[in-house]
Simulated assay, not measured.
Amino acid sequence: MNNKKVFSGIGWSFAERISAQLVSLIVSIILARILAPEDYGILAIVNVFVAIGDALVAGGFGIALVQKKNSDDTDFNSICWVSVFVSVLLYAVLFICAPLISDFYANNDLTLITRVLGIRLVFSAVNSIQQAYIQKKLLFMKSCIIGTFGAIVSGVIGIVLALTGAGVWALVAQNMMSVIISTAMLCFFIEWKPRLQCSMSSIKEMWGYGSRVFLATTVDTLKDNIRTLVVGKVFSSADLAYYNQGKRFPQLLVNDIVNSVGKVLLPVFSEQQDDLNKNTDFMRLSIRVSSFILLPLIFGMVGIADNFILLFLTEKWMPCVPYLRILSLVYVTR
Rank of each mutant, 00 (worst) to 15 (best):
S19R: 00
F269P: 09
R33F: 11
P99S: 03
Y40I: 06
G53C: 01
G9F: 05
V168L: 02
V93C: 04
V27E: 09
T333Q: 04
S83Q: 11
R115V: 04
Q197P: 00
F249P: 00
P250R: 08
L215V: 14
K5E: 10
D275I: 13
D73V: 08
G147I: 10
R248G: 12
V50H: 07
S178T: 05
F123R: 05
G165T: 05
M141H: 12
Y331S: 06
A216R: 04
V116F: 05
A170F: 02
A166L: 12
K247G: 06
R227A: 12
N307K: 04
G300D: 05
G232P: 00
L171S: 08
L171Q: 08
F76I: 11
A106K: 12
R288N: 07
I101Y: 01
L215S: 13
A173P: 13
V27I: 15
F76D: 13
N225L: 02
T217F: 07
L25C: 03
N70S: 15
V93K: 00
D39A: 14
K263S: 15
T217R: 10
I287F: 14
A238N: 13
L297K: 03
R120G: 03
M141S: 13
G210I: 04
V234C: 10
R334Q: 15
L138F: 10
K136C: 11
R195A: 13
S19H: 02
G165E: 07
D103A: 08
G262K: 05
L311A: 09
F149C: 03
R227L: 11
E205L: 09
K204T: 14
G300A: 12
F149T: 11
K204R: 15
T218Q: 07
A55D: 11
A162H: 01
I226A: 07
M318E: 13
M185S: 06
V268W: 02
R115M: 14
F149D: 00
L327R: 01
E191G: 14
L186T: 08
N3K: 10
V48G: 00
L139I: 11
A64C: 08
L161I: 03
V261M: 01
W169Y: 13
S286R: 06
L112W: 06
S182W: 09
R288T: 01
V230I: 15
N2V: 01
E271H: 07
L121N: 08
M176T: 06
A32M: 08
I45R: 01
V6L: 09
R284E: 00
Y331R: 15
S260M: 10
F14G: 04
T74A: 11
F49N: 09
A151W: 01
L43A: 14
K136L: 05
M177S: 07
M176C: 12
F104G: 04
V213E: 04
R248V: 04
T228S: 12
L229P: 00
Q135D: 05
P296I: 11
K316A: 13
A36Y: 10
R120P: 00
F214E: 02
D281P: 06
